[in-house]
């Protein structure tokens, strides 16, 4: 997809449903400084969602889609799970893979895109749940990192298999009893952020999605680093409020409680040296741009 192709034929414009007209008129494709602050001011790239009321995953989706630096040239790869119910509503190219296969699909896709469009920046972003990333697809996840595939992997960690009724997953915390795991988890939560670091990821973040500005920052960084250097990994806590016995309004508080410094979702990051250098360069360029814009504005005034 490219921006030039997102144009409705003039003679049939009036019959197009309004959500498509809005996408063309006021979505943020091509806007360099797009971010979560566009939510509410422009057409979002997610039309509606079929998740449960109050699901933190829907917040995460909105923030991530608002933060992708290059949505018109991004392909997202999803997998089986709650996220796969949302992808049909997303105005970014996406592929649904077999359960667990997402990083293998993304590897081939990224390579094919770089051959097919050598002069264009094409981003690939994997977005899957913890079952697909850590249990069923762990082989594909790790192999992609070992091979230094240049794409971002985002894991929505809700600490169990949510849409099949609450079975135990590798990312579930020790001792947790779920509806379909009555004995309680017998071993610790798999430490995937550490594994990601050791497997060659250049940018690894663990956080919740309670703060949109933080989600924006880490998504942008992850995509930019994956584009230039190598694999990146984000593990975002998106609790399943139904499975942990919370009400629709309590998802945000659950995330806030879980990100306190002593809790299991305290913010953690790992940035490799080359990635640090790249982020510094990007930051310097941004500062230059801002200074130039400021100067221009003051001259105009």
């Amino acid at each position: 997809m490219s921006k030039e192709k997102i144009k409705i034929s003039e003679d049939l414009y009036d019959i197009m449903p309004s959500d498509y007209q809005d996408l063309v008129k006021s979505a943020t494709y091509g806007k360099e400084d797009r971010g979560w602050k566009d939510i509410g001011n422009s057409k979002e790239l997610i039309e509606q969602h079929s998740l449960c009321a109050g699901c933190p995953e829907s917040m995460a989706f909105r923030y991530i889609l608002a933060s992708l630096p290059n949505p018109e040239d991004t392909v997202m790869v999803g997998s089986t799970g709650c996220t796969s119910l949302v992808f049909p509503m997303v105005a970014v190219h996406n592929i649904h893979s077999l359960f667990g296969n997402q990083n293998a699909i993304a590897s081939g896709l990224k390579r094919a895109l770089s051959v097919r469009f050598p002069g264009r920046t094409k981003d690939v972003v994997v977005l899957a749940g913890d079952g697909a990333t850590v249990d069923i697809g762990l082989d594909m996840t790790l192999q992609a990192w070992f091979r230094q595939e240049k794409f971002t992997t985002i894991c929505f960690d809700n600490e169990l298999y949510a849409n099949t009724g609450g079975q135990e997953s590798g990312l579930m915390q020790k001792g947790f009893v779920a509806k379909m795991a009555p004995v309680g988890k017998l071993f610790d939560k798999v430490r995937l952020p550490e594994i990601a670091r050791e497997s060659g990821c250049h940018y690894v973040i663990q956080c919740t999605v309670s703060k949109p500005s933080l989600v924006e920052k880490v998504v942008r960084n992850a995509v930019m680093i994956a584009r230039e250097i190598g694999p990146t990994y984000l593990q975002l806590y998106t609790p399943c409020i139904l499975e942990i016995g919370k009400n629709s309004m309590e998802g945000l508080q659950e995330m806030r409680d879980s990100e306190k410094p002593t809790e299991r979702f305290a913010y953690r990051e790992y940035i490799s040296e080359p990635a640090k250098q790249l982020l510094a360069e990007i930051s310097a360029k941004d500062k230059e741009k801002k200074a130039a814009a400021k100067q221009l504005a003051s001259q105009g005034a």
Binding site: I6, K7, I8, E10, L12
Partner: peptide
């Protein structure tokens, strides 16, 4: 293929459909 004006031919077909 005709609703989106992804090339000139598509736009012309849209006119013909109207």
């Amino acid at each position: 293929l005709v609703l989106w004006a992804w090339n000139e031919k598509a736009a012309k077909k849209a006119t013909a459909i109207r």
